[in-house]
Design a protein around this nucleic acid. Structure first.
Lengths: 147, 147
DNA sequence: TATTTATTTATAATCTTTACAATTAGTTTA
DNA sequence: TAAACTAATTGTAAAGATTATAAATAAATA
């Protein structure tokens, strides 16, 4: 039941003067319901059935718009393509070294780190990001290496 | 005087059975003396004068080898290309939203975060990474936007 | 020195993302 | 509602980073 979040997000878009097209709505909805931080291509493939004529460019365009409005964050990890995250609440990510799976976990925001960085470097700090890497339970069981 | 670190690194390579070619030596040396976490292309351009016939592929090959041996870390940020870091001591990065500059800063390792992530997610945690984003002093002064 | 193996080089190929121009669709105004 | 305006979509090309491949070269070993 993420109906409420979807409606809130649409409200945000309207307030920003952004049109709600079917494709845009679909990308937003998919991201809100997705727990796995999909790549642009994954979103494209997922919506292909519903929008057979949709271009990959549309997915990128919409992700850019959603990012600019603040509804979506772009995450870059070691792998080749960016991942997109709709969950704007404070959380960090755990990433599997083996299969690339991403799992959220909550932890009090590291404000002291930001404060110290600001002091030491003279930066005007806006935000930070933290990722914990390791082997996920599934890959621990199987014990297989990726390549 | 990072002579010592260079020699240690070369020792590590020898122990791993990796040949020390002039190009490889140069890439390693450049990374050790660089404070700015260069991209592969920056390394390539920097060594062009010394090795006019060197291929970009060689830079990538060597970075891969150095990474596999544990001498180099690959860092992926929002911008398009990876950056490479030879400093294996514990430190975090501050990154300028505007110009992309990277500045190191030291902070006690966040072991508690790793421990909690391990508990909550069941991952077998290997390491973590943290970056603080903001506007660097130079860009604060100038007040110019990148695009 | 001859042989084996790793590395380099040059180039092509791949993959992700952006740019662009034409078309289409949504919104506003008359 | 129709006309006019603007934003978004589409299809395709282009850019940029990285990897793959095969031939040539250099290093190590016997």
């Amino acid at each position: 039941m993420s109906e409420k979040r979807l409606n809130q997000a649409i409200e945000t878009l309207k307030e920003s003067g952004v049109r709600i097209t079917p494709q845009r709505h679909a990308v937003l909805e998919y991201l809100l319901n997705s727990m796995v931080h999909p790549t642009a291509d994954e979103i494209y493939k997922a919506l292909e059935g519903k929008f057979p004529n949709m271009s990959v460019a549309t997915v990128y365009n919409n992700l850019k718009v959603l990012r600019e409005v603040g509804l979506v964050r772009e995450l870059t990890y070691g792998d080749s393509s960016s991942r997109f995250d709709c969950n704007t609440s404070d959380h960090y990510h755990t990433i599997c070294n083996n299969c690339g799976k991403i799992v959220d976990f909550h932890y009090p925001p590291l404000n002291e780190v930001e404060a110290l960085a600001e002091q030491v470097t003279g930066f005007d700090v806006s935000h930070h990001r933290l990722e914990v890497y390791g082997t996920c339970p599934d890959c621990q069981k199987v014990g297989t290496k990726k390549h």
